[in-house]
Protein backbone atom coordinates (compact mmCIF):
# COMPACT_ATOMS: atom_id res chain seq x y z
CA UNK A 1 0.00 0.00 0.00
CA UNK A 2 2.82 2.33 0.37
CA UNK A 3 3.14 2.71 -3.38
CA UNK A 4 -0.34 4.11 -3.48
CA UNK A 5 0.85 7.02 -1.45
CA UNK A 6 3.13 8.18 -4.21
CA UNK A 7 1.77 11.35 -5.69
CA UNK A 8 0.12 10.84 -9.03
CA UNK A 9 1.66 12.69 -11.93
CA UNK A 10 -1.48 13.83 -13.57
CA UNK A 11 -3.53 16.73 -12.42
CA UNK A 12 -5.49 15.78 -9.37
CA UNK A 13 -6.95 18.95 -8.28
CA UNK A 14 -10.31 17.87 -7.11
CA UNK A 15 -10.13 14.16 -7.34
CA UNK A 16 -9.50 11.83 -4.43
CA UNK A 17 -5.91 10.93 -3.79
CA UNK A 18 -6.29 7.43 -2.49
CA UNK A 19 -2.89 7.13 -0.95
CA UNK A 20 -3.47 10.17 1.23
CA UNK A 21 -7.01 9.10 2.01
CA UNK A 22 -6.02 5.62 3.09
CA UNK A 23 -3.15 6.89 5.16
CA UNK A 24 -5.52 9.40 6.71
CA UNK A 25 -8.06 6.78 7.69
CA UNK A 26 -5.43 4.40 8.95
CA UNK A 27 -4.06 7.14 11.15
CA UNK A 28 -7.53 7.91 12.43
CA UNK A 29 -8.06 4.27 13.28
CA UNK A 30 -4.68 3.79 14.92
CA UNK A 31 -4.94 7.10 16.67
CA UNK A 32 -8.35 6.17 18.08
CA UNK A 33 -7.11 2.80 19.34
CA UNK A 34 -4.01 4.28 20.92
CA UNK A 35 -5.93 7.20 22.36
CA UNK A 36 -8.55 4.99 23.98
CA UNK A 37 -5.93 2.59 25.35
CA UNK A 38 -3.84 5.57 26.38
CA UNK A 39 -6.68 7.08 28.37
CA UNK A 40 -7.19 3.72 30.07
CA UNK A 41 -3.49 3.62 30.88
CA UNK A 42 -3.61 7.15 32.29
CA UNK A 43 -6.56 6.14 34.44
CA UNK A 44 -4.50 3.23 35.76
CA UNK A 45 -1.72 5.63 36.70
CA UNK A 46 0.53 4.88 33.74
CA UNK A 47 2.33 6.89 31.10
CA UNK A 48 0.59 9.85 29.42
CA UNK A 49 2.47 9.25 26.19
CA UNK A 50 -0.08 7.00 24.53
CA UNK A 51 -3.03 9.26 25.21
CA UNK A 52 -1.18 12.21 23.74
CA UNK A 53 0.36 10.34 20.83
CA UNK A 54 -2.99 8.76 20.00
CA UNK A 55 -4.56 12.19 19.93
CA UNK A 56 -1.77 13.47 17.69
CA UNK A 57 -2.21 10.57 15.31
CA UNK A 58 -5.95 11.16 15.23
CA UNK A 59 -5.42 14.82 14.36
CA UNK A 60 -2.88 13.88 11.69
CA UNK A 61 -5.38 11.50 10.13
CA UNK A 62 -8.15 14.06 10.09
CA UNK A 63 -5.90 16.68 8.52
CA UNK A 64 -4.73 14.21 5.88
CA UNK A 65 -8.31 13.43 5.03
CA UNK A 66 -8.80 17.13 4.40
CA UNK A 67 -5.60 17.35 2.35
CA UNK A 68 -4.22 19.94 4.74
CA UNK A 69 -0.47 20.39 4.75
CA UNK A 70 -0.70 20.97 8.51
CA UNK A 71 -0.93 17.18 8.76
CA UNK A 72 2.79 17.07 8.14
CA UNK A 73 3.49 19.46 11.00
CA UNK A 74 1.12 17.65 13.30
CA UNK A 75 2.80 14.35 12.70
CA UNK A 76 6.27 15.83 12.97
CA UNK A 77 5.35 17.01 16.44
CA UNK A 78 4.08 13.53 17.32
CA UNK A 79 7.20 11.90 15.98
CA UNK A 80 9.65 14.29 17.62
CA UNK A 81 7.77 13.95 20.87
CA UNK A 82 7.92 10.18 20.50
CA UNK A 83 11.65 10.36 19.91
CA UNK A 84 12.23 12.47 23.00
CA UNK A 85 9.97 10.32 25.15
CA UNK A 86 11.51 7.06 23.90
CA UNK A 87 15.01 8.31 24.60
CA UNK A 88 13.96 9.48 28.04
CA UNK A 89 12.44 6.09 28.81
CA UNK A 90 15.07 3.67 27.61
CA UNK A 91 17.94 5.57 25.99
CA UNK A 92 20.23 3.51 23.82
CA UNK A 93 18.61 0.15 24.55
CA UNK A 94 17.82 -0.59 20.91
CA UNK A 95 15.76 -3.70 21.46
CA UNK A 96 13.60 -1.65 23.80
CA UNK A 97 13.34 1.07 21.14
CA UNK A 98 11.87 -1.25 18.55
CA UNK A 99 8.21 -0.98 19.61
CA UNK A 100 8.66 2.70 20.41
CA UNK A 101 10.31 3.93 17.23
CA UNK A 102 9.94 1.53 14.33
CA UNK A 103 6.25 1.85 13.59
CA UNK A 104 6.06 5.60 14.26
CA UNK A 105 9.02 6.14 11.94
CA UNK A 106 7.44 4.11 9.17
CA UNK A 107 4.39 6.29 9.50
CA UNK A 108 6.61 9.34 9.33
CA UNK A 109 8.04 8.19 6.01
CA UNK A 110 4.56 7.64 4.60
CA UNK A 111 3.33 10.98 5.87
CA UNK A 112 6.30 12.74 4.30
CA UNK A 113 5.58 11.01 1.00
CA UNK A 114 2.24 12.84 1.00
CA UNK A 115 3.87 16.28 0.81
CA UNK A 116 3.86 16.69 -2.99
CA UNK A 117 0.24 15.63 -3.23
CA UNK A 118 -0.83 17.89 -0.39
CA UNK A 119 0.94 20.82 -2.01
CA UNK A 120 -0.95 20.38 -5.25
CA UNK A 121 -4.31 19.51 -3.82
CA UNK A 122 -6.53 22.23 -2.42
CA UNK A 123 -7.41 21.67 1.17
CA UNK A 124 -10.92 20.94 2.22
CA UNK A 125 -11.40 23.11 5.21
Amino acid sequence: MSDTTAPPNHATTHSTIWGVKILGWVNVLLGAVIFIGGVWLIALGGSWYYGLAGLGLLVTGILLNRYMIEAIWAYLIVWLGTLAWAWWEVGADWWAQVPRLVAPTLILVLVLLCIPALRRHPSKI
Binding site: V33, I34, W40, L41, G46, S47, Y50, E89, P99, A103
Partner: peptide, 17 residues
Protein backbone atom coordinates in the same frame (compact mmCIF):
# COMPACT_ATOMS: atom_id res chain seq x y z
CA UNK B 1 6.10 0.05 33.16
CA UNK B 2 9.02 1.03 30.93
CA UNK B 3 10.07 -2.61 30.71
CA UNK B 4 6.94 -3.51 28.79
CA UNK B 5 7.49 -4.54 25.21
CA UNK B 6 5.85 -5.70 22.03
CA UNK B 7 6.27 -5.32 18.29
CA UNK B 8 4.41 -2.06 18.02
CA UNK B 9 3.18 0.75 20.23
CA UNK B 10 -0.19 -0.98 20.37
CA UNK B 11 0.88 -4.27 21.88
CA UNK B 12 3.33 -2.44 24.09
CA UNK B 13 0.45 -0.29 25.29
CA UNK B 14 -1.64 -3.39 25.96
CA UNK B 15 1.17 -4.85 28.07
CA UNK B 16 1.48 -1.59 30.01
CA UNK B 17 -2.21 -1.78 30.78
Amino acid sequence: EKDMWGFTPIDQLWCRI
